[in-house]
Amino acid sequence: MSVDVCEAPHCQLVCENSSFLDEENSLVSLVQQLHFNYKVSLLIPDCSSAPSHLDSVINSFSSFVLIKNMPVSEFIDKDFLETAVYPGSVCALSYRTRIGEDNCVALMPNGRLRLSLDRHSYHLLGIEGKVSKFRSKGRHIVSVDLTDSSMAPGGRGYDRLLSGLTCRLPLTSDFLLSHQQGVQSCLKSLLSRYDWSELRPEVSTKVLHQLTCPSDLGSCDAYSVMDWLGAVDAGISSSIGSSSSFLSTYTCPGPQRMATTALSISVSGFLLPHHVQILIMEVRQFLEQSSSPWASLTVHGFTDNVVSCCENEHGRLRGGVNFYTLLMSKGHDYKLLIVTGSHDSCSP
């Protein structure tokens, strides 16, 4: 029996052409459903500096905190439930835990606590869950709605989860936490008990000169667009140009033109979808007033995220790819490219 060893990592690409004016477009729901964003990259050709209103939006991504060695049971602490979980808007993700290898935890703004556990930890916890769809080493997914009445402090479900997380499986991890109303004011008592640091998303701005770009990005096929955007983001563009070079034959796709300048901005950290939404609106407004023909915005999710969009399961395998690129042109039309790895049940 022969085995096909030519298998490359599988990914799914979804392309959507739509309009911001279309009430049924899926962009808003997609942006809001992806809670755990790691990096946002923006590319605007024929632009050398961001106007002040766009600049202020880019710098307004809220700060987040890194809490060290925090027990997961803190998420069901009565005080934390009342100040952060019930009002909503708090997001937490275990940091430096590798999905598929370690136990990973995520808390979503809707109050759902999601744990991705190995077989041994799952049995110790004693809370009903589901076998991972990707069946990686007996992994189980436990999902608990902390806003459910059975999970109210004192309730049967609550007591069972509390004893599981404090006695049978006292899981601890470093966590990234973010809150729309500001972490410090909402989570004061929690932070007072642990070693923590407040962090600002890192903003990097580059002005690219003499950038060879496709003259009509919208007409290029999706794979070429993403290769080209990746090349620009990785700083490869300067060496592009010759199809006969010994080192690389990669060239800019389609009919080309030279953009005198291009603005490349990236923000990385623990980014909330709310700010991504504001940034999209601001870029649209900017495009209407500027000479730039289009802008691209790419949002990368965390590789080791437990959940993908629609609260489906996310795994890694060899890539853990989960990102989307939004190509906006003047007017209201846009092209959305959503990429997910083979271990991702996102179905936008």
Binding site: A8, P9, H10, C11, Y38, K39, S41, L66, Y95, R98, L176, S197, L199, Y223, M226, D227, L229, G230, A231, D233, A234, I236, S268, G269, T298, H300, G301, F302, T303, D304, R318, G319, V321, F323, T325, V339
Partner: peptide
């Protein structure tokens, strides 16, 4: 890192160093 998309390689959250 290995990926079918060059763009995926520019946003690897495992490279996030916070401390």
């Amino acid at each position: 890192q290995v990926s079918p998309f060059l763009l995926a390689l520019t946003g690897n959250s495992r490279e996030l160093q916070l401390d």
